[in-house]
Amino acid sequence: MFWRDGSQVDHVSVTDRSFQYGDGCFTTILTKSGKMQLWDQHVKRMERALSQLKISPVDWHKLKSDIDKLASPKVLAGIKIHVSRGEGGRGYSPNVNRGPLITLSQFEFPASYIELRRSGLEMTLCDISLGLNPLLAGLKHNNRLEQILAKEHVERSGHIDGIVLDIEGNVIETTMANIFWFKDGVLHTPSLKMAGVEGVMRGEVLRIVAQDECPIVIDSFKLSTLKAADEIFVSNCILGVAPVTKIQDAQFPIGNMTRRIQEKLGQ
């Protein structure tokens, strides 16, 4: 179900900028028994995207009130916040007739995610490479064509997820999550300054590991570095943290550090 301005809707205007140009941003939030998780972090991430895209600010207090009324009472569920710049504007001109426009949707928690958290994921390598775009890197904007093509390749290969590189051969993310690995007690994760999505759960993982005073390296890494890892895991706000047990022909154990992070996240 979808809501806009407190009312249930099943369509949007053909002049909506998100429909016309992917002009907006979104975030997906885990809810537990109707309570949003990591709300402040989602707001911060969305405010950065809105600022970067030059979209007018959102009334977060009102929006939270609306979401509290709509969130599922189930133990686990999800809410998606979709922001469009608005309606109207000739061609690429960002001058809109009204906006921003916010659409809320509620969705079920994927039952398979519980098992993925426990037993891990087997990954393929996507044949789609991400372009370099420092202006939009890190943002969860509404134009996700690269990710859609990467996901199409993953599903065609019979896998749930896959590793995505940029056009220079650097590991960036997976088709559904950010990626981390430990090597000799040091946490590694790719830099997202040129490509990729900076997930809210990524920030939580970095915060938890930093609290344990574990060394962290954020940099550019090739696939060979990832495959030499001691343990690998992925993160997003709905899945949480899940281990990676295989990438192509390389296998990996489910590590103690991954389990420790899951425990600290309440999984």
Rank of each mutant, 00 (worst) to 15 (best):
G78P: 02
S191K: 14
Q248W: 04
L125F: 08
Q41R: 03
G120C: 09
G22I: 04
H153Y: 12
T28V: 03
T258P: 10
K183R: 11
S65F: 04
E152D: 15
Q52D: 06
S84F: 14
K183H: 02
A177Y: 03
S93D: 15
L136F: 09
H141C: 00
D127K: 14
I254N: 07
T28M: 07
A250K: 12
M36V: 03
V96I: 13
L206T: 07
C126T: 10
W3F: 14
V96G: 02
T28L: 03
L223Q: 12
G185C: 02
L149K: 02
C237R: 02
S112N: 06
E213A: 14
K80Q: 05
E47R: 09
L187D: 13
D5K: 10
G240F: 06
L63Y: 02
D16V: 07
G240Q: 04
L38H: 15
R202G: 10
Q251N: 15
I172N: 13
C126H: 01
K140W: 01
L145W: 13
T245L: 04
G185T: 11
T245V: 15
S84E: 14
L136H: 08
L132R: 04
L104S: 02
Q52R: 15
I160L: 12
H61W: 04
D10K: 14
N178F: 05
Y21H: 09
L104E: 08
L192N: 07
R48Q: 06
A49P: 02
S191P: 08
K69E: 15
D212W: 14
G169C: 08
V75S: 14
S56D: 07
I148G: 06
G162R: 09
I148C: 10
G24Y: 06
L239D: 03
V14F: 14
L121F: 01
T245N: 02
L76M: 00
G131I: 00
Q267I: 15
D68P: 03
A228M: 05
K62N: 08
Q41G: 00
P215C: 09
V241P: 09
P134Q: 00
K227T: 11
T225E: 13
G162V: 01
S105T: 13
G266L: 01
T27V: 04
C25S: 08
N178Q: 05
E204C: 04
P73H: 02
C25Q: 04
G203T: 01
A77N: 05
I102L: 11
R260V: 03
P190N: 13
N97W: 11
G22L: 05
R207N: 13
V75T: 15
L192T: 08
K151S: 13
S129W: 14
R118Y: 10
M36Q: 03
Q251M: 09
I261M: 07
V197G: 08
I79V: 15
V197R: 05
S220E: 12
L226C: 04
L226Y: 07
I128D: 12
W60K: 07
I208E: 12
P243L: 00
E122C: 11
H141K: 04
S119T: 11
D219L: 01
M46P: 02
G199M: 01
K183C: 05
V197F: 01
P190F: 09
V171C: 06
I179S: 01
T103E: 10
K54E: 14
F107H: 12
K246L: 09
P100E: 06
G91V: 03
Q106E: 09
G22S: 11
E231N: 03
G131K: 02
Q37F: 06
E263A: 15
